[in-house]
């Protein structure tokens, strides 16, 4: 998919403003996300990076008072258009949340949930296959293959989060959004997830919100820095971490505030 050494643009946000009631949370965000890359969004707490992430699959619809303005174009299609179908959009853009949130059902049902509602499997056999490949991709298969029909809430935190990732990739989304996926996990589980992210980027475009700059540096190719609802700077991870243009970015990176 390479074109003249530059990656294809998968998502491009233009002039995005977000309001919570009367309070403006995001100011005029312009950001392009490249295909099959990991893009990290960093910044201090409350800077709006999670809000921006939730704009990308319209999860902000769930919050009554939240209003999004501007254009977010995915596959030449503005998702903030009235005609946009949220259900179809979310099928293409999966999400992994901060706290692992497996459904209170069996492991199998957790994975098969998405394919079932989207009618992706015609038979039980096909469904078994989907469940297996998803779990394998999420590097969870070996650990759980003998207890697929036990409740998903019985797993450890790290396993639960990988289960959620498996659930997200079961519908073969083009983009996976990750909202601080490792913040509730211990370092070993975190390392496993990070490895997984590296693997997943071959087939999916990944956007990850993270608190940890080290994590951003480890997993991402591109980075955007948010501060007080504004996108201060974005570019390749190398450049942001080694040679940022903006003084605020530098201060944050070097730990002077945030």
């Amino acid at each position: 998919m390479r074109k003249n050494g530059v990656n294809m643009i998968k998502i491009s946000a233009k002039n995005v403003d977000v309001f919570y009631g009367k309070k403006q949370a995001l100011f005029n965000i312009n950001l392009d996300i490249e295909e099959n890359q990991v893009t990290a969004l960093i910044g201090p707490s409350g800077c709006g990076k999670s809000t921006f992430l939730r704009c990308l699959n319209r999860m902000n619809d769930v919050i009554d008072i939240c209003k999004v303005q501007g254009e977010i174009v995915i596959n030449d299609f503005n998702i903030n258009d009235k005609g946009c179908d949220v259900v179809r959009l979310r099928e293409k853009i999966g999400m992994v949340f901060q706290k692992p949130n497996p459904f209170p059902k069996t492991l199998y049902e957790n994975i098969s949930y998405g394919p079932t509602i989207h009618g992706m499997a015609q038979s039980k056999q096909e469904m078994d296959e989907i469940v297996e490949t998803s779990l394998k991709k999420a590097a969870l298969w070996e650990e759980v293959k003998d207890r697929l029909h036990e409740p998903g809430t019985g797993l450890s935190g790290g396993q639960q989060q990988r289960l959620c990732i498996a659930r997200a990739i079961s519908v073969q989304p083009e983009v996976i959004l990750m909202d601080e996926p490792c913040s509730a996990l211990d370092p070993i589980a975190t390392a496993q997830i990070e490895e997984l992210i590296d693997e997943l980027k071959k087939e999916h475009t990944i956007i990850i919100v993270t608190h940890s700059m080290a994590q951003a540096a480890r997993v991402s190719q591109r980075t955007g820095f948010f501060h007080l609802g504004e996108l201060i700077e974005h570019g390749s991870t190398d450049k942001i971490f080694k040679n940022p243009d903006n003084i605020k970015t530098q201060d944050y990176i070097t730990g002077r505030f945030g």
Partner: peptide, 11 residues
């Protein structure tokens, strides 16, 4: 086409 049909049904 199947997918469209399914989606209509779901809605």
């Amino acid at each position: 086409k199947n997918k469209e049909k399914l989606l209509a049904k779901r809605y």
